[in-house]
Design a protein around this nucleic acid. Structure first.
Lengths: 153, 153
DNA sequence: CCAACATTGGTGACACGTCAACTATTTCGC
DNA sequence: GCGAAATAGTTGACGTGTCACCAATGTTGG
């Protein structure tokens, strides 16, 4: 291996600040979600994806694609959510292998309650802190980093 | 609750791009660490903290403070790392309740091997993509968001 | 001194994510 | 058609993180 390009002091500072921010921001969102609703972030994402579809139901593989989750993760997650009555499995007549995930009334109620508080939290923790310019910069930087990121999806 | 301040389209775009980036960047780092070493990110963080101390050993509570981890998380983590010979527990003579976590030779070797590749990955995935200005912006934005973040530490 | 209280750390149950292996169905080449 | 390969989803084992509770030791006020 060639000589290591160690981080400069400035780079270390950038990197550690970013890491800390992203960890704490995420932790804060998890805490808020848990405090204000019966949902986890993962539950929330699944329910959002389901309400975004006209029928309120999607095939597993499609849902996994939307969320960019592994299929087995989705399988476990849906099994847990089903136990709590947030979603249902439905047989798929077109394809004997497949199945639908459908949102239930209880699931719909849960997300309708959770969404406003979650959005408000994002506003408070992120956008209230940043100028319009900074928000644009954050997007540009995120997009730049995303570009080269090989994602095995 | 007052009327919800929903996200504007631009805000949604910023937010989703940031979320995706931070998730994928993290996933890429985990993959690289797993591919190039026998360590997880958590292992790595613990070993870094240990090598940062002159003695190569720290009390549990202090280590938890350094990492801003919960004590029980650290306890589980150290137990697993101990099984793999990366760290040792040592009795604390000054305080019968306490204990030290100490890095082993095996642990030292592991981190010395893992660090260069990890740093190189951070360079490639982050700093090679960003101009100096963008790096500064990222730091400023992260710091800004961190400011108001109540952290229960 | 000794009874409350605080502190240090550990433990068990559970939620979550990944990986590898599996079953059942469909599709495709011949 | 039919057997091989692809596809849909499941399962079990394991690493990991959190929470609530526990044990042991130390500290402190009367």
């Amino acid at each position: 291996m060639a000589k290591t390009r160690w981080l400069t002091d400035e780079q270390q500072c950038v990197w550690r600040t970013y890491l800390l921010m992203s960890k704490r921001l995420n932790a804060a969102l998890v805490r808020q979600m848990q405090a204000d609703s019966e949902l986890s972030i993962a539950d929330f994402e699944v329910l959002v994806a389901l309400t975004d579809t006209p029928e309120g139901r999607v095939r597993y593989a499609e849902l996994a694609r939307i969320l960019t989750w592994e299929k087995s993760r989705l399988s476990h997650q849906v099994a847990r959510m089903q136990k709590r009555g947030l979603v249902e499995r439905r047989a798929c007549t077109e394809d004997g292998r497949g199945a639908y995930v459908a949102i239930t009334e209880r699931g719909r109620k849960a997300i309708e309650q959770a969404a406003p508080k979650h959005v408000e939290t994002v506003q408070q923790l992120v956008f209230d802190k940043l100028s319009d310019d900074e928000a644009k910069q954050l997007q540009a930087i995120s997009a730049r980093i995303l570009e080269g990121l090989d994602c095995p999806d």
